[in-house]
Design a binder for these strands. Structure first.
Length: 196
DNA sequence: TACGAGATCGTCT
DNA sequence: GACGATCTCGTAT
């Protein structure tokens, strides 16, 4: 069996953005670095839906930066934020409808990598991957590894850092796995029984 | 534990 | 010239 059989295909992303976002929880983000393969279980995402969504970068129109969001689904939208950090998105829906899903947190080998900036730092994702096709199984892609995620296990919350978007900031378009597995309790016990 | 502010630069006006 | 889909550290409590 080819490894590419599990790669999420383009049609997966050519669906409503909120649907794609929620269903990406529990899937895997796979990155190839120097011949090594890193796979992280997706824990948290956010949906940015179309030109009317004031929190979506593309709501300000089609610019050099947002152009990629107007293209077809399954393509990476990577941008620099606050001059320091990168954010990884995957473009969704049909062409000419600018929308994407921001990947906010993953879990690799039981370790939670929480936050889009940290995630990109861990996987060495930067703007060189902007416009990369994420459906080819090269260097960066999404995989379905068969893990079942019950709908009730996914919480819906307002998106982070978009207060300027008014009513749109209140949309429950951030999805997060409720029970994040924490197999190791090392260092988690601070005040209680911890050594001094 | 909670809060405030600095870091740092591409993008758009 | 202003600002941002973030993160970290320092200070206060």
């Amino acid at each position: 069996m080819k490894p590419t059989q599990r790669v999420l295909p383009r049609i997966y992303f050519n669906r409503p953005t909120v649907t794609v976002a929620r269903s990406l929880i529990g899937k895997y983000l796979v990155r190839v670095l120097n011949g090594r393969t890193l796979a992280g279980k997706i824990i948290e995402v956010e949906a940015y839906v179309g030109p009317e969504d004031k929190a979506c970068h593309a709501s300000k129109g089609r610019t050099r930066r947002t152009d990629v969001m107007f293209g077809h689904g399954g393509v990476a939208y990577v941008y620099l934020i606050y001059g320091m950090y990168h954010c990884l998105n995957v473009v969704t829906e049909r062409e000419e409808f600018p929308s994407a899903v921001l990947i906010r947190a993953i879990e690799i080998d039981g370790e939670l990598i929480d936050g889009p900036g940290r995630l990109c730092r861990a996987l060495q994702i930067d703007r060189r991957l902007n416009r990369a096709d994420l459906t080819t199984g090269e260097s960066l892609w999404f995989e379905d590894r068969g893990a079942l995620v019950e709908r009730g296990a996914v919480g819906a919350h307002p998106r982070v850092g978009v207060d300027y978007a008014g009513e749109w900031a209140k949309k429950p378009w951030r999805f997060r796995l409720r029970r994040v597995t924490s197999p190791t309790r090392t260092g988690r016990t601070k005040a209680q029984g911890g050594a001094g």
